[in-house]
Simulated assay, not measured.
Amino acid sequence: MDAEAEEEFREFVEARSPELLRLAVLLSGGDRHAAEDLLQSALIKVAARWHRIEDPEPYVRQVLYRQQIGRWRLRWRQREVTVAAPPERGTGDASGGTELRVLMRAALSRLTPRQRTVLVLRYFEDLPETEVARLLGCSVGTVRSTTHRSLAKLRGIAPELEALRTGPDRPTSDLRPVEVAP
């Protein structure tokens, strides 16, 4: 890589690393160390082909997806994170968004890597089913069924997410009419 291309690559990494790391964290189920490894290995692959890449953002994202797919196909063991004490529950203050992110990250980590990858691609990356199927190398029907089963499992293992969604400051999903006496 010549000096000019190296400088372009450095600028891209500095500008886009935070966003790409967030994606890698979601893909790796909230494991920051695994996410950093995932992003680093993707950037190494991209650096080798930098002079041939026209639009680097989608290319890096595709490399991230494929790296993660390769990892779950190898069926790596789920590593447990040991902590001294369980985390405290939220108190309902202004940290609701943070609490939701923490709960969502924990819930996603309880899914299989394939289920997590499908949900991240569909709902975080907002990709259509056809694109997810193309990236994962499967049919659209497989994406649909995996999405359906993953959401059902997510609702089962993380009912606290539903409680947050229908909390006191958010509308409930029960929109039945109520009779009012005069």
Rank of each mutant, 00 (worst) to 15 (best):
109 S>V: 04
147 T>N: 09
120 V>I: 08
136 L>I: 07
140 V>F: 03
152 A>V: 12
80 E>G: 10
118 V>D: 01
86 P>V: 05
124 F>Q: 08
164 L>N: 01
106 A>P: 01
91 T>F: 12
85 A>V: 14
147 T>A: 09
167 G>E: 14
105 R>I: 05
72 W>R: 08
122 R>V: 01
62 Q>E: 15
59 Y>M: 07
113 P>S: 12
125 E>Q: 11
130 T>M: 05
164 L>H: 06
64 L>M: 06
129 E>I: 04
98 T>Y: 14
150 S>K: 00
120 V>D: 00
160 E>I: 03
110 R>E: 15
152 A>T: 13
131 E>Y: 00
103 L>A: 15
75 R>C: 07
164 L>C: 08
171 P>E: 14
82 T>P: 02
96 G>T: 08
81 V>S: 10
141 G>W: 03
110 R>H: 14
119 L>A: 02
166 T>F: 15
69 I>K: 10
104 M>F: 13
167 G>H: 10
118 V>W: 00
83 V>R: 12
78 Q>I: 09
138 C>F: 05
131 E>D: 11
89 R>W: 08
115 Q>K: 06
103 L>S: 11
128 P>A: 07
154 L>H: 04
92 G>N: 06
147 T>H: 05
116 R>W: 02
71 R>F: 06
76 W>K: 15
76 W>I: 15
92 G>Y: 09
156 G>W: 07
57 E>R: 12
159 P>F: 14
65 Y>G: 00
134 R>E: 12
99 E>T: 07
167 G>I: 08
166 T>I: 09
77 R>L: 14
166 T>W: 13
96 G>K: 02
93 D>A: 11
76 W>H: 12
71 R>K: 13
165 R>H: 05
120 V>G: 00
164 L>K: 04
151 L>S: 02
103 L>G: 05
107 A>N: 05
107 A>Q: 05
159 P>C: 14
